[in-house]
Computed example of a mutant assay.
Amino acid sequence: MKSLALSAVLLTALAGCASTPTVHTDYDPGTQFSSYHTYTWLKKPEGRSPLVDQRVTAAIDAHLAAKGWRQTSGTDADIGLAANVATQQQQTLDTFYSGPAWGGYGWGRWGGGVGMGSATTTVRTYEVGTLVLDMFDMKTKQAVWRGTASGTVPDSPEAVNAKVQAGVDKMFATFPPGSVPAK
Rank of each mutant, 00 (worst) to 15 (best):
M1N: 04
K2G: 12
A5M: 09
A5L: 14
L6G: 03
T12H: 10
A13R: 05
A13W: 09
A15L: 15
S19A: 14
T20R: 14
P21N: 08
H24W: 08
T25E: 02
T25N: 02
D26W: 07
D26Q: 12
T31F: 04
T31D: 06
Q32L: 10
H37W: 06
T38F: 06
Y39R: 08
L42Q: 10
K43V: 13
K43P: 02
K44Q: 15
G47C: 03
S49I: 01
P50R: 05
R55W: 00
R55H: 03
A58K: 07
A59E: 03
A62E: 13
L64W: 12
L64Q: 08
A65E: 11
A65C: 02
G68L: 10
G68C: 10
R70S: 12
Q71C: 02
S73K: 12
G74K: 13
D76M: 03
I79G: 03
I79C: 02
G80W: 10
L81Y: 08
A82H: 05
A86E: 12
Q89T: 15
Q89G: 13
Q90W: 02
Q91I: 02
Q91K: 15
L93G: 07
D94M: 03
F96K: 12
G99S: 04
G99L: 08
P100C: 00
A101C: 01
A101L: 10
W102T: 09
G104A: 15
G106K: 12
W107G: 03
G108Y: 11
W110R: 11
W110C: 06
G111A: 06
G111V: 04
G111K: 10
G113S: 10
G113W: 09
G113Q: 06
G113D: 06
G115W: 09
M116K: 04
G117P: 09
G117F: 09
S118G: 14
A119L: 03
A119D: 06
T125F: 03
V128I: 15
G129N: 04
T130F: 02
L131P: 11
L133N: 07
D134Y: 04
M135K: 04
D137M: 10
D137F: 11
M138S: 11
M138W: 06
K139C: 01
K141E: 08
K141S: 12
Q142T: 13
V144N: 07
V144P: 03
W145M: 05
R146K: 09
G151F: 03
D155A: 14
P157A: 10
E158W: 08
A159C: 03
A159L: 06
A159G: 01
V160E: 09
N161E: 11
A162I: 10
V164Y: 05
Q165P: 00
Q165H: 11
A166L: 01
A166R: 02
D169K: 07
F172S: 00
F175E: 06
P177G: 13
G178A: 11
G178F: 09
V180E: 12
P181R: 10
A182Y: 04
K183C: 00
